[in-house]
Design a protein around this nucleic acid. Structure first.
Lengths: 120, 120
DNA sequence: ATAGCGGGCTGGAGTAACTTCAGGTCAAGG
DNA sequence: CCTTGACCTGAAGTTACTCCAGCCCGCTAT
């Protein structure tokens, strides 16, 4: 698969994918004889997961750690599982944060409406 | 109110508060004769709102714009209302992103469990 | 066959939003 | 009087990208 296809699939930008490879967040990608990256389906799936983790706020050092475990092999699955469970908990926290913000916005918007109502 | 109190209240770090003042994200804070910042209750409330908006992913240029409107006065309330409504929609999108990620994590975790179950 | 595309490559500079640091002021306590 | 703690400033450092200049390669229209 070409880099542009993986970008479309994963939601990461082409530059970000190259950056991720350079900084060890994904395994080194095989190259064609012209130097272009040839992504396997597994590569693409991995980057899609990273994209999702990033978008939901996983710190990159965790991502880096996770990537290291992934490249080490199946023996690290218990630890990877632990990391993903931890992230699930972070998702709950984010969910809470969003709800609190929603409530705050509702409060502010109500106040704005009161002010606008008064002046008209 | 002292900066440390506002930091505790708002959830922003002391450094971030100073940075926000310097870059115009909050109105200039009054100073005591020793040069320390003396926050009003309104200042503190504003920073708390900014903290919440930041934590839920409002781009800082929007925050800057919003801050400009705030400092201009009540005439800008309709536009501020519009910005907050827009942010509400972004919150929904984030909510979706989190849910998609949850589903993905559940999928990965199930796969890990299958692998671990097999090998035991 | 050659000129112009489109897509990919690299190394390096630029950016956003903080964060950390060095060095200094001031008020209060022992 | 000296230290401690909270605060100040300007500047440098960090993270995670993002953009850019300059180059290669294969394709296709002339």
């Amino acid at each position: 698969m070409r880099i542009s296809e993986v970008a479309a699939k994963s939601g990461l930008s082409i530059d970000t994918i190259r950056y991720y490879e350079k900084s060890g967040l994904c395994p080194p990608i095989a190259r064609g004889r012209d130097g272009t990256r040839q992504f396997t389906a597994e590569n693409a799936e991995w980057l899609t997961l990273l994209s999702s983790l990033r978008d939901t706020g996983m710190p990159t050092k965790d991502m880096r750690h996770f990537a290291g475990l992934y490249q080490t092999g199946d023996a690290t699955i218990p630890e990877r599982k632990h990391l993903l469970l931890e992230h699930s908990r972070r998702l709950e926290a984010r969910h809470e944060t969003i709800n609190r913000c929603k409530a705050l916005l509702a409060h502010k918007l109500a106040r704005y409406d009161r002010i606008l109502g008064q002046s008209s």
